[in-house]
Design a protein around this nucleic acid. Structure first.
Length: 116
DNA sequence: TTAATGACCTATC
DNA sequence: CGATAGGCCATTA
């Protein structure tokens, strides 16, 4: 209800990511209206006030690479969680964004009140 | 208060 | 087409 507004928005979008899909920081920032908020999005997930509740493991970078240090329990934890969701990983250890890239259309309609 | 950092992205050469 | 540099927002020290 003040400065947490920005963070709350990030958590809202992250919680809105459907199972078996992933999105990028830039995509989330873009949904907020400021594509440059990509860094703040990562920071919001870094603080992650509700680990285990917020599916931050479904958020990856633009290259589809996972976070260097996952704060959920183990670095391999994120990859396992995504694999359990049915996400395919490449030999590079990156997520196939072309297969699970969530554009956040649902959130866009909810915020802008209309489709793209 | 100023300065520096960060789970990033976009634009330009 | 590929690589480099900069920028933007918020938070912390």
């Amino acid at each position: 209800m003040s400065k947490q507004n920005t963070f709350s928005t990030v958590y809202e979008i992250v919680c809105c990511i459907p199972k078996g899909y992933v999105t990028t920081y830039g995509q989330i920032a873009r949904l907020m209206g400021n594509p440059r908020l990509s860094r703040v999005v990562g920071y919001a997930l870094h603080v992650n006030p509700r680990p285990g509740i917020i599916p931050c493991h479904r958020v990856v970078n633009r290259f589809g690479a996972l976070s260097p240090a996952f704060a959920f329990g183990g670095v391999n934890r994120q990859r396992i969680l995504l694999e359990e969701e049915g996400i395919r990983f490449t030999s590079d250890g990156c997520v196939d964004l072309s297969r699970h890239m969530w554009n956040g259309e649902e959130y866009y309609i909810k915020t802008h009140g209309g489709p793209l």
